[in-house]
């Protein structure tokens, strides 16, 4: 037996299903995040991304299937002790200062980092000057950055972030991107939900695209955005030549004509993550 197999995944879900009354939010999802890996979860609204991460952090109970964090059952104290989480919709009590929010979470995670840890985390998310500012006096983006700092309290091994940059300006997004790269360097595993394809493309090692509760595409951003072939429309119908590139297009047309086909159209299949995404999910908005 290889030793690798005995090292638990940082985060793993297997055959995960979730039903909310008549809505089947997840239909059997498999996904793993390895140690030090940054995995992005993409998908249209309502695809089940938040449901998946809520199960992983123990907020929601799966209808069927397993979810584990660092080898421990999702939601167990052992799992939660390894975890930092930023919810999609969250709020801190308005009367707490930034420093007090972090202090509360230090106590709940038994972190002994003290004022030094709080200062370091606030500086990481560019809130060093807002240390004594109360939450209800903070802008939405500041609160989201405080949420990210909160998720990092107690140096978790696994970080689950549900749309951490949804309220951030471009500078804020950049701060988060740099932060994520730094964390990966430290061996932290990250599962990240986002609608920002460019962001995911820049930072993620692997991407999974979810649609209507199912993983419809998965791989590294490079794999998902590789040239995907040339599509040829002839009197025989539409045919895709896998692996063909723009360079092959003229030759493919010539061959088809030589073979007596009528060529109505030729299309080089485009290659960004966005195309892969749109192809995988269709134009679905739910």
């Amino acid at each position: 037996m290889r030793t690798l197999a005995t090292v638990p995944h940082a985060l793993a879900v297997h055959a995960l299903e979730k039903r909310y009354g008549p809505v089947q939010a997840l239909k059997g999802v498999d996904l793993t995040v390895e140690e030090g890996e940054l995995v992005g979860l993409l998908g249209p609204n309502g695809a089940g991304k938040s449901t998946l991460v809520k199960i992983a952090v123990g907020l929601v109970r799966a209808t069927r299937g397993q979810a584990e964090v660092a080898g421990a059952r999702a939601g167990s104290r052992a799992a939660l002790a390894q975890l930092g989480y930023l919810a999609e919709l969250f709020r801190f009590p308005g009367w707490y200062t930034a420093d007090e929010v972090l202090s509360l979470h230090q106590r709940l995670t038994h972190s002994d980092g003290g004022a030094a840890e709080r200062g370091r985390l606030l500086a990481l998310v560019a809130l060093a000057d807002a240390r004594g500012r109360r939450v209800d006096g903070m802008s939405k983006g500041m609160q989201q950055r405080l949420g990210i700092a909160q998720a990092l309290v107690g140096t978790p091994r696994v970080l689950v972030l549900d749309e951490p940059t949804s309220a951030l300006d471009p500078a804020g997004r950049r701060i988060v991107r740099v932060l994520l790269e730094e964390l990966r360097g430290q061996g932290v595993s990250v599962l990240l939900n986002s609608h920002l394809l460019s962001e995911i493309e820049l930072v993620c090692d692997r991407v999974a695209i979810l649609r209507a509760g199912e993983v419809v595409a998965a791989g590294s951003p490079a794999e998902l955005s590789r040239p995907r072939g040339v599509e040829l429309e002839t009197d025989e119908g539409t045919r895709t030549v896998e692996g063909a590139t723009r360079e092959d297009a003229a030759r493919l047309v010539a061959e088809a004509v030589a073979a007596g086909r009528r060529v109505y159209g030729v299309r080089v299949l485009t290659s960004t993550l966005e195309d892969t995404y749109l192809e995988a999910v269709g134009d679905e908005v739910s």
């Binding site: 952090v57 123990g58 907020l59 104290r77 052992a78 939660l80 002790a81 975890l83 989480y85 919810a87 919709l89 969250f90 709020r91 801190f92 009590p93 979470h105 709940l108 995670t109 038994h110 949420g147 909160q150």
Partner: peptide, 14 residues
């Protein structure tokens, strides 16, 4: 509903 509870529940408190 207000999102106040979730950050507390995911802490290893039970």
């Amino acid at each position: 509903e207000r999102g106040l509870l979730q950050p507390l529940v995911v802490r290893p408190v039970g």
